[in-house]
Nucleic acid binder design. Structure first.
Lengths: 136, 136
DNA sequence: ATAATTGCAAATGCTTTGCTTGTGA
DNA sequence: TCACAAGCAAAGCATTTGCAATTAT
């Protein structure tokens, strides 16, 4: 269902305003990883009175609640995606900007091992691959 | 020698100004991964007339010439380090901010493999581990 | 000589915030 | 009702840029 995010909000005790519902909805339906401005554009079509400050506040709220995830890929602007059920990393096409999600359990394991070898518990990580399409 | 960066500038045909020499020198002697402001503070002690705009311009110039590397760890501000002879990744202590460099050839291999499986040539990557020190 | 570089301050781009009015529970 | 959220515009930061003066080659 597309209001999954709404339910999460309720469970987290977040007040459910019209604007938050809209942003949740747009976020749910996003195929790509939109930045705040894209989000604002889309939400704006549904409610032209919403302000970009609200989008920023909501996105941060959702992020802190663990409902969505923030990414800072190269080329700065923060991009968001719905917090995935299962963790994944990203491969970014350096020519088109297309973002492909992937999972590799071997890499995950090695990361934990590396951290431990250095005397650390792995709390979080960021892995981004940048590549160009192989032409046949 | 600490003026390794200077030689690289010459080889790249970059004009060698006093300010660039200073920044190169400070960069060479940095143990940590300084951000522009730290760099500016240090350089400023050697030449109080230097402007922060010059530091920004120089750091970008060096980066584009492949002389230094730019990192965007979590918590935004760009940090720089001398371009290493051998590639390495970073583990960041989430409590102290300390940055530890590491190399793991297995992870590197897996990354290439993952990219290829997705139909891409791996051009670049970013791997950051965030951890907290294991207490004995 | 002269094209590139600097310093300064103003401009930019993204993000946050103060304050008043509006609203969900 | 009333603590919290939204809208607006102003402020904040990191970074970039226009321009006149300076400098490396």
């Amino acid at each position: 269902m597309s209001d999954d995010i709404e339910n999460k909000c309720i469970r987290k005790g977040l007040r459910l305003t019209d604007q938050r519902k809209l942003i949740a909805q747009v976020m749910s339906r996003s195929e790509n990883h939109p930045d705040v401005d894209e989000l604002y554009q889309r939400v704006n079509k549904l409610d032209s009175k919403i302000s970009i400050a609200t989008v920023y506040r909501t996105v941060k709220l959702f992020e802190e609640a663990g409902i969505i995830e923030k990414h800072g890929f190269k080329g700065n602007k923060a991009r968001y995606e719905q917090a995935p059920q299962e963790h994944h990393d990203h491969l970014i096409d350096i020519h088109t900007g297309e973002i492909i999600e992937f999972v590799n359990e071997d890499i995950e394991k090695l990361q934990r091992k590396v951290a431990e070898k250095l005397g650390y518990n792995l709390v979080d990580h960021r892995l981004e691959l940048y590549g160009s399409k192989i032409k046949k």
